[in-house]
Structures are given as structure tokens and as C-alpha cells.
């Protein structure tokens, strides 16, 4: 089990990354809090050392993506509406570049992680494949289709304007 200092360092270092992945998948603050707790608790409980800071970051990304997937899949969640959702406002999207953020949020689930990891984190298709446990060619296909969908949507927005 890791120490409190290590836990705090990880939250400071990877909090933004986890928050961005949560943002593209989840719609409310309560779920994001759940994911934060799940991901960093797993980090605290993991005793095996990381080979490098890159390995550590990739591990955090994979655990976050899987935790989001699990949360969205859960039977309870698919059949109920949490009080938080009813009480709380959906998370606010920053005004700047809101078109891009909204376009990413509108993508089907399976395209969100590859597109974020490629365009924001700068991972190659092969690296994304390793992180998400997918075939490299599958990642290429996902990226191409996602790019196409984003382009269509953003061009549509531009035309509307």
C-alpha cells in the first residue's frame, strides 16, 4: 500500500488527465467523484512499482477508461436515474472551443478515448492500442471514423454559423 504522500502526488499529477477522460464519458459531478476515488484508490493499493513515469501515466489512463466503461455499463445505472443527476446541473462545458468539446462528447463511446489520446495526449495508434487493449489497426479505423464524424459535425456547425 502506498503512502498518503504518494497518493497526493498522484492526484496532483494525474488529476487533470483523469478529469478530462471523465468529462468525455460522464455527465455529472457525482460520477466523476466516484471515478476519482476508484482510480486513485487502485493506485494506492497497487504495490508493484512502475517502470517509468510514462508507464505510470499509461496505467492511470487505462484504469480511468475502464472505470468509466464499467460505470456506464453497470446494470443499476442503466435502469435508474441517480438523484444527483436530477438535483445537480450537468457539468458545464467551457465556452472557448465548446464546439470541439461538444463534438467529442457527441461521438459514440468507443471513439472517445482513441480520439482524445491521439489529439490531446499525442499517443500513436500503436500506443493507444496497448493502453486500451485493442489491435493497432482497429485503433487506426476508430481514429479515421472519429475524425470523419468530428469533421462532419464541425463543418455543419461552421455552416450554421
Amino acid at each position: 500500500m502506498r503512502s498518503e504522500e504518494e497518493a497526493n502526488r498522484a492526484v496532483d499529477l494525474y488529476g487533470d488527465t483523469v478529469r478530462r477522460i471523465c468529462m468525455i464519458h460522464l455527465k455529472n459531478r457525482a460520477d466523476t467523484e466516484d471515478i476519482f476515488q476508484t482510480v486513485f484508490l487502485k493506485y494506492v493499493l497497487r504495490t508493484a512499482p512502475f517502470e517509468s513515469p510514462e508507464h505510470e501515466k499509461a496505467w492511470i489512463i487505462r484504469v480511468t477508461a475502464n472505470a468509466c466503461k464499467d460505470l456506464l455499463r453497470s446494470f443499476f445505472r442503466s435502469r435508474t436515474v441517480s438523484l444527483d443527476v436530477l438535483i445537480e446541473k450537468p457539468q458545464e462545458i467551457p465556452e472557448d472551443h465548446s464546439d470541439i468539446l461538444e463534438a467529442v462528447l457527441a461521438l459514440p463511446e468507443k471513439y472517445k478515448d482513441p480520439i482524445y489520446l491521439h489529439y490531446y495526449e499525442g499517443y500513436t495508434a500503436e500506443e493507444i492500442g496497448q493502453i486500451l487493449g485493442k489491435n493497432t489497426n482497429t485503433v487506426y479505423t476508430l481514429l479515421t471514423r472519429a475524425r470523419q464524424m468530428l469533421k462532419t459535425r464541425l463543418e455543419g456547425v461552421a455552416e450554421d454559423e
Binding site: G15, V18, R19, E33, F36, P94, D96, H97, Y116
Partner: peptide
Amino acid sequence: DAFSQIHAEDGLK
């Protein structure tokens, strides 16, 4: 630019 605006809120951390 769009994604770099997103940060984990201090309260959340």
C-alpha cells in the same frame, strides 16, 4: 486548446 481548459477542480482533488 479545448481540452487544456479542463482541469480537475481543487475541491475534487
